[in-house]
């Protein structure tokens, strides 16, 4: 659905995006993560035809973005990180404005608007002035606006930023519905665990470069392979287990809290299995041995912290 080839954008001497090669399959959700200034918003603005790339090309639904911007605009729904609304319009008029802008016949508009307001849980706000809606409601109305022309691709730049927890839950629930409907979604966010639960693939951007991309689990595995954290809960004092572990190779750190040991271990699942067998063979009583779930935020920090291209 999205393909970019060496996509770059320069603002004066600053390279906001550098030779970006991205591929997003139809019907999947792709998350772009990275700190502020990483180039996520610039990338999305180029894909949404708002900025002309300095170099490289991008295709959306097969259309080259710079050569066929009108065709691209018809198949994308773009929601910027900060967007205003027309305060003097009601929610219905706001959506009708965009429906007309996308050339939808007047006879079809009302039905579309009713369905969209239902989808974003704003049916009862149909005749309310946009000015009187809460931030979360405006954000959902903005999402409905993106959907007015039934786009195949949604480009959502930090859609949950600044929302209260309840509104965020509602928004993610709507996004899940949209994903289930088969929409392709390119989304950026700082709420990384939410992205991990939602996206099929992620790309990590840092200083205009895509420093890692691929399947969420695959990326986590790749960076976990360098070291995983395992918690070992014992039925006895930690002394024997510590002595055994100190002899073990590939252990980069060991922390003892009573009968709980936190071990950072190089290698994958097989290495963990080996360690467990050895401890049991020594007769150490273990009642729990588990890898702590790696937060995608930690993975992101690890990748971004390296500051160099770590793509395989």
């Amino acid at each position: 659905m999205i393909r970019t080839a060496n996509l770059s954008k320069r603002f004066g001497g600053v390279e906001a995006v550098q030779s970006l090669n991205l591929m997003v399959r139809e019907g999947t959700a792709y998350g772009l993560i990275g700190p502020n200034g990483a180039g996520k918003t610039t990338t999305m603005a180029m894909l949404a035809t708002l900025l002309a790339p300095s170099e490289g090309k991008a295709w959306i639904g097969g259309w080259e973005v710079r050569e066929h911007p009108d065709e691209v605009r018809r198949i994308i729904g773009y929601m910027p990180d900060f967007f205003g609304v027309y305060d003097q319009l009601t929610a219905e008029e706001y959506l009708a404005f965009f429906a007309a802008g996308y050339g939808i016949e007047p006879s079809r508009r009302e039905g579309i608007i009713i369905r969209l307001l239902e989808l974003v849980r704003l049916t009862d706000k149909r005749d309310t002035y946009v000015d009187h809606l809460s931030r979360g409601m405006k954000q959902r109305l903005g999402l409905a606006r993106c959907l007015v022309h039934e786009p195949r691709l949604l480009i959502l730049d930090e859609p949950a930023s600044g929302m209260d927890p309840r509104s965020r839950i509602e928004l993610w629930s709507i996004l899940r519905e949209l994903k289930a409907m088969g929409k392709t979604i390119l989304i950026s966010s700082h709420i990384l665990p939410e992205l991990a639960g939602f996206c099929d693939a992620i790309g990590v951007m840092e200083q205009g470069k895509l420093v890692a991309d691929g399947d969420v689990q695959e990326i986590m595995n790749r960076y976990q392979a360098a070291g995983r954290t395992v918690e070992i809960h014992l039925l006895e004092d930690a002394e024997r287990a510590v002595k055994r572990l100190e002899k073990e190779e590939g252990i980069t750190s060991l922390r003892v809290e009573g009968r709980k040991l936190t071990v950072e271990l190089e290698g994958d699942e097989h290495r963990q299995a080996e360690l467990l067998s050895r401890l049991i063979a020594e007769g150490i009583s273990i009642y729990r041995f588990e890898e702590t779930a790696t937060d995608i935020g930690e993975v992101f920090l690890k990748i971004a912290g390296n500051g160099e291209d770590e793509r395989p």
Binding site: A45, P80, G84, Y86, Y102
Partner: peptide, 13 residues
């Protein structure tokens, strides 16, 4: 200033 222009410009107008 109201940040409505980017949205307006993504329409095929």
């Amino acid at each position: 200033e109201r940040q409505t222009l980017s949205v307006l410009l993504t329409m095929p107008l």
